[in-house]
Simulated assay, not measured.
Amino acid sequence: MSETQPVIAAVVRTHVENAAFFWAQRDTLAAEDPPDTEAIAFVDARLEANLDALRIAGAAVWPFIIEAFEAFPEKGELFVLTHRALETGDARRLEQAVAFARVCDDGTRGLCGAFEWLPPKVTAAVVRDWVDSGDSARTEAALAAMIAHGGHPGDRLERLMRNGSDTVRRMAASFASRPGRPDATVTGGD
């Protein structure tokens, strides 16, 4: 969709709300022990359909994403903001997502979720920058991407294990407890 084509506000708003809802639902389902893989697959298809609609809306989607987060500062809305910022390479919006993660009801979960959802080819450059950022929200998102895609922090692991954030230390410990590839890059899986 070009920048000059109008969008139908109610339709775009619905897709933003649906994408946030479906990702939050997916995240909750995935946390169950054991996760219901059939239910997750069902939700994933609906989530991806709504994300496709946001892609089609292009830049016109941003006011609706911000409006949704301001109304409901929750993990699903943060996921949608972060997802679009990463996929479009919008550094300003990605910084906005980090700021929103600091006030989000669910902390960084939606931020991390977008890094887990998107493939390493989309997130790798940001992961490389953020793992060494010294900012716990950024580091958590970078580690979430590595965990989800089979990456490893390499020689950073020892430093991450001493990080001031309990969450970062816990995430780093997950690397220490699995067969490591200390020579692996921080970009994700093979």
Rank of each mutant, 00 (worst) to 15 (best):
D155I: 08
R138C: 08
A57F: 09
D183T: 10
N50I: 08
N163H: 15
R13H: 04
V168E: 04
I8R: 11
F175R: 11
D166A: 15
M161K: 11
P182S: 11
D33R: 15
D105Q: 09
G154A: 10
F22I: 03
T185L: 15
N18F: 09
D33E: 15
T37L: 15
V16R: 01
A137G: 03
F64I: 12
A30S: 08
I147T: 14
A30L: 11
W62E: 12
A99S: 09
A39T: 14
D105G: 11
A60T: 06
I56M: 13
S133Q: 05
A49L: 15
T37K: 14
Q96V: 00
D33F: 10
A125D: 15
G113E: 10
P34T: 13
A101V: 01
A137V: 02
V168P: 04
A49W: 08
R55T: 11
G107W: 04
P182F: 10
A97I: 04
R55I: 09
A30K: 12
D155N: 14
I65Q: 09
L86C: 01
D27W: 10
D106G: 05
P119A: 08
Q5I: 07
A41L: 12
T4K: 09
V122P: 01
A20Q: 13
A49P: 08
R159L: 13
N18Q: 12
R84V: 09
T167F: 13
D166W: 03
V186H: 11
E17K: 05
N163T: 00
R162D: 11
D44R: 14
R26D: 03
A60M: 12
W117K: 02
R55H: 13
L118I: 03
D106P: 07
P119V: 11
D183I: 05
M146A: 07
R162P: 04
V127C: 04
E3R: 06
A148V: 07
Q25C: 08
A71S: 10
H83T: 02
G107A: 12
D90F: 00
T14W: 01
D135L: 00
V12D: 01
T4Q: 08
L94H: 01
G110D: 08
I65S: 05
N50V: 06
M161I: 05
F175L: 13
E158R: 11
L81Y: 01
D132A: 15
A31S: 13
D36S: 13
E17F: 00
H83I: 00
R92T: 02
H83D: 06
T28R: 13
A9L: 00
V168K: 05
T14A: 14
G134P: 09
D132C: 11
W23L: 11
A71F: 04
S165T: 06
A148N: 03
T108I: 09
W130Y: 05
M146F: 06
V127A: 08
F64S: 13
T123N: 07
A57R: 13
